[in-house]
C-alpha cells in the first residue's frame, strides 16, 4: 500500500516541477535485511517503513536520487557522513554539498512536511533567511550543531 496518498502525490509532483532547481541526493542509512535474529542487536523498528516512504518520495521528481546504505555493512560510509544511529537520512545538493540537513527517525506525520520543504531548500541551495539574519550568521566561524527533537504526531 502506498504511504503517500494519490491526491498528495499529484500535489507534490506539481510542487516539485515548479520549485526544484538542482538535483537532490537522499542518502539513507538503514538496517539490512537479516532473517537471523541476533541476540543483543538493536532492531531498527522504523527502518523498513522509512525506506518505503523514501522510495515513494524518490519517484516524485526525476531530480531526486535515493542512495541506500546498510548501517552495519557500509560502516565506512556511515562514518564519512557522521551517522551514529538509524534510520538516518542526509540531504545532499547537486554538487555533493551538504547543507547539514539530517533526519534521525522516521519523517512521518508533521515531519513529512519538514522533509517536503527541506528537499526544495537543498535543491535551491540557498537560505530563506532575511538578509539581516544572513549577514549576522556570516560572522559565525565555528561549527554549529543544532538538534531538533520532534515527535511524528
Amino acid at each position: 500500500m502506498a504511504l503517500i496518498r494519490e491526491k498528495d502525490r499529484q500535489l507534490l509532483e506539481d510542487k516539485y516541477r515548479r520549485e526544484l532547481e538542482g538535483k537532490v541526493r537522499l542518502v539513507y542509512f538503514t538496517q539490512g535485511e537479516n532473517l537471523l535474529h541476533v541476540p543483543g542487536r538493536v532492531e531498527c523498528e522504523q527502518c523498513k517503513e522509512m525506506e518505503e516512504l523514501l522510495q515513494e518520495v524518490a519517484t516524485l521528481s526525476p531530480q531526486f536520487e535515493l542512495v541506500t546504505y546498510d548501517f552495519v555493512a557500509d560502516q565506512a560510509k556511515a562514518a564519512e557522513y557522521g551517522i551514529d544511529r538509524i534510520p538516518a537520512l542526509v540531504l545532499e545538493g547537486e554538487d555533493g554539498s551538504s547543507h547539514g540537513v539530517r533526519f534521525f527517525g522516521i519523517t512521518s506525520g508533521y515531519e513529512f512536511a519538514t522533509l517536503v520543504e527541506d528537499l526544495v531548500d537543498v535543491s535551491k541551495g540557498r537560505s530563506r533567511l532575511s538578509e539581516a539574519s544572513q549577514t549576522k550568521a556570516a560572522q559565525i566561524d565555528r561549527p554549529v550543531h543544532i538538534q531538533i527533537f520532534v515527535t511524528p504526531t
Partner: peptide, 10 residues
C-alpha cells in the same frame, strides 16, 4: 531532526 520516541536515550 531527531525523532524523540525512536531515540529515548537521547
Amino acid at each position: 531532526m531527531i525523532e524523540a520516541i525512536e531515540f529515548p536515550e537521547l
